[in-house]
């Protein structure tokens, strides 16, 4: 078991709120970990710590054993992370296809000079078309994001993250805003990716789908880690039950 991601004693405070409290977590190659917890549990915040959008007050994050602390967001992505955000952020002035194609072009956008010397976007567009089809957006490749509903943009986020071919795929509530059939379809895709070797950390409120596809669960509440382990075991944990049933959700 080789670890891809190691989170060590991470704490994040926003003013008086402790969004993440002394969290440690390890994800190994090939795992699909479901990350659940009630609203405001600090899930998104932890995700942002991993990608470098939020700086933790304490603790560190290692990707393949290397400390990410001094790396910028783009450098972390370059090192093998990819994030599909909970709050969708499409690039509004380009088509769905180009949104993904840009993400496919990391070899051409890695250096300014290379980017300057290349004009051909077709190979990336072809690849992007394939990815959009995979997430079920094959019929809207030429649409502008502003014209599409949330469920589509959620999947755009996923396609853009997949395009980066990361070592660890971070998904923040990709199923929110999708109807039941769409959600099941995307969950199947996530499972398929994992079967093909992709390591994934999946934040999701849709417990039904999470329990269906994730062998491992990590639960957090109010920033505090509650449980980690085999999904069935975790769901029997009394703390987890009370967090969900007695708590806010």
């Amino acid at each position: 078991m080789t670890p891809v991601l190691q989170i060590e004693n991470v704490t994040v405070r926003f003013g008086g709120v402790t969004a993440v409290h002394d969290v440690s977590l390890t994800i190994n190659v090939g795992e699909l970990v479901g990350f659940i917890g009630p609203n405001g549990a600090g899930k998104t915040t932890l995700m942002r710590v991993i990608t470098g959008i939020v700086k933790p007050q304490q603790g560190r994050v290692l990707l393949e054993g290397r400390d990410l602390a001094r790396k910028s967001i783009d450098a972390r992505v370059g090192a093998g992370l990819a994030l599909a955000q909970q709050i969708v952020q499409p690039l509004h002035d380009m088509s769905m296809l180009d949104n993904v194609a840009l993400s496919c072009g990391s070899r051409k956008t890695g250096r300014v000079i290379t980017a300057m010397l290349h004009t051909n976007r077709e190979p990336e567009r072809d690849k992007a078309r394939g990815l959009l089809e995979k997430v079920g957006l094959g019929n809207v490749v030429d649409a502008m994001p502003a014209t599409l509903p949330l469920g589509y943009l959620k999947r755009l986020e996923v396609a853009r993250a997949m395009a980066l071919e990361p070592k660890l795929l971070l998904l923040d509530e990709p199923l929110a805003g999708l109807n039941q059939a769409e959600a099941a379809g995307l969950a199947d895709l996530i499972l398929g990716l994992n079967k093909a070797g992709q390591t994934i950390l999946l934040i999701e409120h849709n417990l039904r789908e999470v329990l269906r596809i994730c062998p491992t669960l990590y639960v957090q509440d109010n920033g505090v880690p509650l449980a980690f382990g085999e999904a069935g075991e975790v769901m029997k944990n009394p703390d987890v039950r009370s967090a969900y049933l007695g708590g806010h959700a």
Binding site: I53, L91, D93, D98, K108, A115, L164
Partner: peptide, 22 residues
């Protein structure tokens, strides 16, 4: 060029550009 592609993206949303690894 791809430089122009990236410029479009930065003009649109710089934070997203970074999340795409650029």
């Amino acid at each position: 060029s791809w430089m122009g592609f990236v410029f479009d993206s930065i003009a649109d949303n710089e934070d997203v550009t970074r999340i795409l690894g650029i």
